[in-house]
Amino acid sequence: MSSTLVASAPPPALGSPALSCRDVQVSFRHQEVVCGVDLELGNGEWLGIIGPNGAGKSTLLRSIVGLIDFDGTVDLGDGRAPGATDVALVPQFPELPKGMTVAEYVLLGRTAHLGWLARESRADRQIVSSVLHRLELGEFADRLVSTLSGGEAQQVVVARALAQQCPVLLLDEPTSALDLGHQVSVLELVDDLRRTEGLSVLAAMHDLSAAGRFADRLILIDHGRIVAQGCPDEVLRSDLLSAVYGTSLTVQSIDGELVVLPAPRRRTRHPEETP
């Protein structure tokens, strides 16, 4: 059995649409949370969504997979509305059922591919085994998900989404509970899959430096509206980010990669200190 995690057909050319949103609007209690968002995700592209807390990033992703009612349209490249075998979501706050092992939980990702009353096949279980191996989670297969640390649980949720083998992957702060080493390994795995197998990635990310490192393009959202979009070096600008995030930020290029940092503090000199 191949270790391929997504469909093995040759990936379409980068730039052809995988997913499109047109005038997507979401309101809660008569208050607009997402305000007429238009975006297009190309096949094999990583499109990052950045913005402060409450900007509407998670709400937008949840509307795309049909978890939230919305106005507007969300279509795949062939014009169909996305289904469970087309788009997988890694949520920011996943619910892990008690009494279920890691392998059983990841196997839930295969549910969308099963017929009515069908059971998982050997091929489904091999896909799960492959995913766990790629994420270095093989030793966790028989552990109960309720015993996992926050970082371990986050990796298992990513594994379930990859086992779903959808051509479009939505990530909602996928590394928020991970240490630095596992953040890099998970993001690099997703990046490898989209480069080698045509996986298209739409990711809401708090880590602006990671967003600039992995995304082909960025969309900056504030109060539910897109305020900037383009290549990382067009969006990750000190003046723009400082205005949207409400704090002074600086953007530096280190070894060819953009790094977003808080502006240096102005240290207040204590009265008895010598100038």
Rank of each mutant, 00 (worst) to 15 (best):
S2C: 02
L5W: 04
V6G: 00
S8T: 12
S8L: 03
P11L: 01
P12C: 01
P17W: 01
V24N: 12
R29P: 00
H30K: 14
V34I: 07
G36T: 07
G36I: 04
V37M: 04
E40S: 07
L47S: 01
L47Y: 01
G51M: 08
G56V: 05
I64W: 11
I68E: 15
F70I: 08
D71K: 09
G72Y: 11
T85Y: 00
V90Y: 02
Q92W: 08
G99R: 01
G99N: 03
T101G: 14
A103K: 06
W116S: 05
L117Y: 14
R119Q: 12
S121Y: 03
D124M: 08
V128R: 08
E136R: 14
R143C: 12
V145M: 11
V145P: 01
G150M: 13
G151K: 07
E152L: 13
Q155S: 12
V156S: 04
V156M: 08
A161Q: 04
A163D: 02
P167G: 05
L170E: 10
D172V: 03
D172W: 05
E173W: 07
G181T: 09
Q183P: 03
T196V: 06
T196I: 01
G198F: 00
L199S: 00
V201P: 00
A203F: 04
A204S: 15
L208T: 09
R213I: 00
R213N: 00
I219T: 12
I221N: 02
V227G: 00
Q229M: 11
P232L: 14
V235E: 10
R237H: 09
L240P: 01
L240N: 04
A243Q: 14
V244W: 03
L249Q: 02
V251N: 03
S253T: 15
L261E: 08
A263G: 10
R267I: 15
T268F: 12
P275E: 14
